[in-house]
Design a protein around this nucleic acid. Structure first.
Length: 478
RNA sequence: GGCGGCAUCGCCAAGUGGUAAGGCACGGGUUUGCAAAACCCGCAUCCCCGGUUCGAAUCCGGGUGCCGCCUCCA
């Protein structure tokens, strides 16, 4: 089977057919770096990572580009277009810092989180602010071709009327757009739907020189300019969150195709938003989680990752802490099987025919699910069934090795089984360590009453004690 | 008003014409000093009403409910 993905443009499942044989070029809409990345952001980035991993595993030469939006888009509390206060500027004012510093700071947090959640590194993370000249060039091309016009002293706008395809991605064609409903009509624009490519505003903190005056770029042009620079005017896959479909991606198409650089992206893949406790995540509702919030609660990167990739990307996922806890149990079971297999691998034993056949067919089923529009849930079903079977069979030697190979194959996509624990366990207090030592002694003396009492005491102190065949271990209760 | 999506066990979630994967939770076991972990057993006829078909969760028609986007938002 070959990889199929749901193409938002065609609204149908499509086989991925590379433009250049054996190569996939992909552009992912990345983070806007003016606040801590939250689980919703990462659901979308993880979808892109999954895609990246599948394409890698299928043997394509992959180029993955993820942009960093550090210009800060504008807030539009009452008025649309480039007239609100820039988010970065707002932060800068609140935090008393330079907007560039703030952007770099959050950019670093994004990269840290991405690493902690085991995302493969993209081949480049171009920043918008590093590509102002490219954006200016593209705007000039648009003006030349009649797709854009300057309003002196105000900026440059894209002439939506001039672009027939406008609306092809979102269905928001000019006829469908409810003129003026949420857009304050600005007389200086030819049409209310025209969007800013360059904006002049003296008060803006981030400014660059341009042929139209000192100002800053509109908020769609960066992706058109950077995707063109790094991937060419026509490339295979473009991803983003569903909210990007309109206006962002619609405008990108208009800019890229309009400027004549190429046909732009062939396949558009969009991740649905996630809900938290059944509602849209928002700070005021108190159901807002950043990745770092979850780390503070004691979750490992692979647990968070597993939970966020666990449901289909085109399905509105409902995130709950209870669900995360359950997912954590599920992934721990797989990881402990991995440990058992690793321990048994050195024994000398040959793999049974039955085992080899099972693993082979499981692997095929797993791949088929993944190829079918990234059906992770289906793939995990296959994995879990094998995990249960392997847990029962307890293969050793060669068999364990082959089982591990199967797990590794799955984990090339999942990225949750063979990755390491995030941070070394911090030290326990002297008191707790003392209790643990006392309990060891009590168990040797078969003083079960004392041993149980100490275990309870440790539990109250937030330490879980487990006696296994390999000895006693402790872990933090979260 | 326009565009799009969804409705399967307590919760999460596969399945797209052949008679309901999987995970978590739960109940009963094996094991364990007890417990944990692991393993075994059990646990749904698919929002409603019509229709097509030998056969539908899956296709068609009509309801009902929920959600996203329509220039901040992954």
């Amino acid at each position: 089977m070959t990889l199929k993905l749901w193409n938002t443009m065609a609204n149908t499942l499509e086989e991925i057919d590379p433009i250049v044989a054996g190569e996939i070029r992909m552009y992912n809409c990345g983070p806007t770096v003016y606040s801590d990345p939250h689980i919703g952001n990462f659901r979308s980035f993880l979808m892109a990572d999954l895609l990246r991993r599948v394409v890698d595993q299928r043997g394509f030469k992959t180029t993955q580009i993820m942009n960093i939006t550090d210009v800060g888009h504008l807030t539009t509390d009452d008025v649309a277009d480039a007239t609100g206060e820039d988010k970065l500027e707002k932060k800068a004012r609140e935090e008393g810092l330079d907007p560039f510093e703030i952007a770099r700071n959050y950019e670093k947090i994004f990269h840290d989180n991405a690493e902690q959640l085991h995302l493969r590194k993209a081949h480049a993370y171009p920043r918008a602010t590093d590509h102002i000249p490219e954006m200016i060039t593209m705007i000039e091309q648009l003006i030349e071709r009649g797709h854009a016009y300057e309003v002196p002293g105000v900026g440059v706008y894209f002439r939506v009327q001039s672009f027939d395809q406008y609306g092809c991605l979102s269905g928001n064609t000019l006829e469908n757009l409810d003129s003026g409903s949420r857009i304050a009509v600005d007389d200086r624009k030819e049409s209310p739907h025209d969007f800013a490519l360059w904006k002049i505003d003296e008060k803006h903190l981030m400014q660059w020189d341009s042929p139209w005056g000192r100002g800053f770029p509109g908020w769609h042009i960066e992706c058109s300019a950077m995707s063109h620079k790094y991937l060419g005017g026509t490339f295979d896959i473009h991803t983003g969150g569903e909210d990007n479909i309109f206006p962002h991606h619609e405008c990108e198409i208009a800019q890229s195709v309009g400027s004549g650089v190429g046909e732009f992206a062939k396949v558009w893949v969009h991740a649905r938003h996630l809900l938290v406790d059944g509602e849209k995540m928002s700070k005021s509702k108190g159901n807002f989680f950043t990745i770092n919030d979850l780390f503070e609660k004691g979750y490992q990167g692979y647990e968070i990752r597993y939970s966020l990739i666990n449901s289909h990307y085109r399905q509105p996922m409902n995130f709950t802490l209870q669900g995360l806890e359950g997912d954590s149990k599920a992934i721990q079971r797989i990881r402990s099987l991995r440990e058992k297999l690793q321990a048994a691998e050195s024994e000398s034993a040959t793999a049974t025919e039955d085992l080899q056949q099972r693993l082979q067919s499981a692997r095929r089923s797993f791949d088929d699910c993944i190829d079918d529009d990234l059906n992770i849930s289906g793939a995990l079903g296959v994995l879990h069934e094998e995990v249960r079977w392997l847990g029962r069979e307890e293969p050793a030697g060669e068999g364990a090795g082959q089982a591990l190979e199967f797990l590794r194959h799955c984990d090339e996509i999942l990225g949750v089984i063979f990755v390491e624990e995030e941070s070394a366990e911090e030290e326990l207090s002297e008191e707790c360590m003392g209790w643990i030592r006392d309990r060891e002694q009590a168990r040797k003396d078969k003083d079960w009453a004392l041993a149980d009492e100490l275990r309870d005491r440790l539990k109250d102190a937030g330490v879980l004690i487990e006696d296994g065949p390999e000895g006693t271990t402790w872990s933090r209760i979260r």
